[in-house]
Amino acid sequence: MKYMLLINSAGTDQAQEGCEASFEDWMAYDKAVQEAGIFVAGHSLADLTTATTVRVDAKGERAITDGPFAETREVLGGYYVIDVPDLDVALDWAARCPGATGGGSVVVRPIADFEG
């Protein structure tokens, strides 16, 4: 069963000083995910200031805007897709993720399965 772990960094008002995960923590976590044989996909996203939003209205008109910006308190900073037997195992991997600490959070979502 595949789950996506959506890694949200803390908004500026929630960040806990001195609790941010280090680069080494992320390297160690990534290595553990790879070595456990559960890695399907994963990326970390570039800074939110580089984001662009696209909407297409009923007439097919395309609207492009800069952002979205800080209306959202938590910012999606990256994701993993892992393949594990059940939600408990997925939650364990989410809890080990450095992104879950320091005021950040990891949202665990099952990947929809249209086959079965």
């Binding site: 069963m1 037997p85 059940d86 939600l87 408990d88 665990v108 099952p110």
Partner: peptide, 8 residues
């Protein structure tokens, strides 16, 4: 069922 919470 869909998030597969285990019976464990």
């Amino acid at each position: 069922r869909e998030a597969r919470i285990p019976f464990r």
